[in-house]
Design a protein around this nucleic acid. Structure first.
Lengths: 160, 160
DNA sequence: TATGTAAGCGCAAACATTTGCATAAACTGG
DNA sequence: CCAGTTTATGCAAATGTTTGCGCTTACATA
């Protein structure tokens, strides 16, 4: 069973209806590959089904995020979405200079989570955690010495 | 020299102009005590100076955040601000159930920051870091057993 | 103190996102 | 396969926030 079919199953099980709009959005996000902006999803959806409404896209993505089918990533203050990979969950580091998104393995957050629970009884929601900051490349370019030159499309780098 | 005067000095030094609107907003945030919503700032500002514009409030708070005079906290998806206390910097844990805000000492993030720098060369911006999650009280209430009665450490003011 | 210039302001319109409501369609159970 | 219930959709309007633009004003200089 693919992750795609698993998602549908999971939705049905939770009592959500499988509408053509929802299937379409899921398909688009699944095929889109990397993080996709809301308006990109909307544009593609409408080209397949012209009555598609922007509100529906927002509602659907919100639902998918809530049930864990997609992961929300804030890139340069806009919301982007990608299919949640059930085997390889990860968080994101987003560079505020180049807007590149890098994956971060969850184990980096485990300790932090445990500390908050232990010291404060506060159970953090780190499911959709994203850190912003400056990535290696952009830090190198900003530095007085020569810049690296590696260009950063919005793409996934590997994690450790 | 108070933190307030220090802020003004710092603004002037960076070439920003000291307008009555800016002074007013600073004063309001400084006296407001805890995290204040944009709306609240606007209302108070306008009662002192009826021409005050909402856009100006937003712009001013954004500027203050940028230069570090105020700290932005997202509380239940609205933006709130408090004067940055230069001696006692702290981050926030915000409960998604009761919207209570709890302070978090920066040392909890130091290790996380260092790890990201070491492993990825990624320098995270944790200046305005806020974690959301479930606080002790709300977790207790949600649990099958009896709930505690402790009220949230900091205040949750109501808006609207 | 008077003056020039750029930064900041108020206003209105744009923007991204959410919501209320009436209609339409997905899922029961017969 | 049909009708009933209930959820989701489309549309429009509301929300919170940002932006473009012409006018005003703070500040540096004389």
């Amino acid at each position: 069973m693919t992750g795609y079919e698993q998602s549908l199953q999971s939705l049905r099980n939770q009592g959500y209806r499988l509408t053509p709009q929802r299937l379409l959005v899921l398909e688009i996000v699944a095929e889109g590959g990397s993080h996709m902006g809301v308006d990109e999803v909307y544009r593609r959806a409408r080209s397949a089904y012209p009555y598609m409404d922007l509100a529906t896209v927002y509602r659907t993505l919100r639902l998918y995020k809530q049930v864990g089918v997609v992961t929300e990533v804030a890139i340069g203050d806009r919301l982007h979405y990608e299919l949640t990979d059930p085997g390889e969950k990860h968080h994101h580091m987003v560079c505020r200079a180049c807007h590149g998104a890098f994956n971060l393995s969850p184990h980096y957050l485990e300790e932090f989570r445990n500390t908050l629970i232990r010291d404060f009884g506060f159970k953090p929601d780190l499911e959709h955690f994203t850190v912003s900051g400056d990535c290696v490349n952009c830090r190198a370019e900003a530095a007085p010495s020569a810049g690296s030159g590696i260009d950063s499309a919005i793409n996934n780098e590997e994690e450790r």
